Simulated assay, not measured.
Amino acid sequence: MDLEMEHIQQIMDQLPDGIIVMNEKRVIYFMNLKARELTGWEIGDKVPYCTYCHHREVEDDEERCLK
């Protein structure tokens, strides 16, 4: 991790809220300490669908996860 990213990580780890950044496949590529504490997930883990998105009916051309 470069120095700038380490500085950003230190700032984000001081926040009281959990922050997770993931790609379109729901794979985590950034998270702060609070998010790890709340979820137990790690960078590289795939975030499961929420209950709503997991159970809702979708059209053939529609994504399951709402953005």
Rank of each mutant, 00 (worst) to 15 (best):
R56F: 05
L3Q: 12
E59I: 00
K25E: 11
P48N: 13
L15N: 09
R56H: 14
N32D: 03
I11C: 06
H54K: 15
D2Y: 07
R26T: 00
V27D: 08
V58P: 05
D45W: 06
I28N: 08
I11A: 13
Y49C: 04
V27S: 05
D17Q: 13
I11Q: 11
L3Y: 08
M5F: 10
V27A: 07
I28E: 06
G18E: 00
P48L: 07
W41E: 00
A35H: 03
T39V: 01
V58M: 09
G44Q: 07
E42C: 05
Q10D: 06
I8H: 07
A35Y: 02
R56G: 05
C53E: 05
L15M: 14
E24L: 14
Y29M: 08
M12Y: 12
G40P: 04
L33C: 03
I11S: 07
N23C: 09
K25P: 00
E6S: 10
I28H: 07
G44K: 09
L15I: 11
L33N: 04
I8R: 10
C50Q: 03
Y52D: 04
K25C: 04
N32V: 01
T39A: 04
G44L: 09
G40H: 04
V47L: 15
R36A: 05
R36S: 05
M31P: 05
V58E: 05
T51Q: 12
E37R: 06
E4S: 08
E59H: 10
H7A: 09
G44Y: 09
Y49T: 01
E24I: 11
I43G: 00
M31L: 15
G18Y: 03
G44D: 00
D2P: 01
Y29V: 02
L3R: 15
H54Y: 14
K46I: 12
R26G: 01
L33Q: 13
V27I: 15
L38Q: 06
N23S: 11
D45H: 13
M5P: 00
E59L: 15
Y52I: 09
I20P: 14
C53T: 03
L38Y: 03
Y52H: 14
V21T: 07
G18W: 04
Y29S: 11
D13V: 09
V58W: 02
T51H: 14
E42V: 03
A35P: 05
T39H: 02
R36T: 02
K46S: 10
E4H: 08
H7D: 06
D2G: 14
M22W: 07
G40M: 01
D13P: 10
I11E: 05
E24Q: 13
M5S: 12
G44T: 00
I8D: 02
E4N: 10
R56K: 15
V47H: 12
